[in-house]
Amino acid sequence: MTKSRQKSCTRAHKLTVCISPWTQTMLLIAAVTIILAFAFTFTNGFQDAATVAATFIASRSATPRQGILMIAGMNFLGAILGGSAVAFTLSGLLTITSGPLALQVLLAALLSATVWNLGAWYFSLPSSSTHALIGGLVGAGVTAAGLGSVYWGAAELLTPPHEITGMVKVMLFLILSIVLGLAGGYAMRRCTHVIFRNANRSINRSIIRVNWVAAAGMAFFNGSNDAQKQLGIIALVLFAAGEFSVLTVPVWARFICAILLSLGTLGGGWRIMKTIGNRIFTIGPVHSMDSQISSGMTLGLSTLSGAPVSSTHIITMSVIGVGAAENPRNVRWDVGKDVLLSIILTFPATMLLSAGFFTLVQQI
């Protein structure tokens, strides 16, 4: 037996355990990938989770401290109680699900998504963590094993909507959720304009109370959808490393993701919050309510359907929709253009990043 193939053995309580160098390497890659998934969850708090508080605070429905604390708390509950449908959808996007190649793909995907998240946060651009992660998975997967490494789900296009799976389902809901965010915000503002047409200013007190309920519901579904993306990756890592015989989401991972998502919301979302809350148009309590109700409904529908979507883009587009219904001339359309540019760039950019990271990981 050559030195490179010798097994490392440890003795504990008269039991000798031998682990080959290759197994040690796989476990090390798995551990690094899980740690990176947790780090990505924290950066997710900068992006998607922080956006939830933007209109709530900008409309003066809550102080910054009150708003952030409430949103962080509901994100935590959503991550704990929100189920696993989204996690299993994400974990089913790759056909490479076991062995060292799968671990390398997952590590490269997370590296690219995390780098993209931090860059978008630095430049105050409301980018999508979801788009970044999915782009990373596709880029690394295709680099590793060609187009067949991704489960596209094209065969299910002619089946009933609830049976659609794979990348087709993900892309369908990503596009549909953005359209619903824009259209829902516009429709909500038109409706509330008619309902509150003859109301006096004292109605704002009641609207602010509704805002608290709407923001709590939206934060709950945001926490559920966001945390499950990382949980799906962690489930894949543990399966690929041979730790579990079936795909499953461990309870300890769910609690850690919930904590980190909340901490990310508390610590780093102010740059993105300023973009959404102040730069698109001047937001009042009724505008915040309209945006939160329409966004919350879209997020809830997507989460219950098991579809990973971008909270940032749903909320941003709903704010633009509300502003357009209020007065199109008061909307900073250049911010909307920046968001659309981010949507267009994120997928190809993270695919290229993850392809590069995969090549680098293989060399190591």
Rank of each mutant, 00 (worst) to 15 (best):
G67K: 01
G99H: 11
A85R: 05
S127Q: 02
V150I: 15
A108K: 04
N117I: 12
V105A: 03
M70N: 08
A155M: 07
T63F: 09
T159G: 13
L101K: 14
I68S: 07
W116I: 04
S129R: 03
T51A: 09
L125N: 01
G92D: 14
T114M: 13
G166T: 07
A113S: 15
F123A: 10
G136L: 15
L101N: 09
N75K: 00
A102S: 15
S84L: 08
S84Y: 14
A154R: 09
A132W: 04
N75C: 10
L118H: 06
L77M: 13
H131Q: 13
S149P: 11
G141R: 11
L111C: 09
G92V: 04
G146N: 03
R60A: 12
A102Q: 07
L111K: 01
S128V: 02
S98H: 15
L137R: 12
T51S: 10
S59R: 06
W152A: 07
A53T: 05
T130L: 04
A53L: 03
A49Y: 00
F56T: 14
S124K: 13
A113W: 02
A140N: 00
A140Q: 00
A72Y: 01
L107Y: 05
H131K: 08
L106F: 01
V52Q: 03
L106Y: 03
I96S: 15
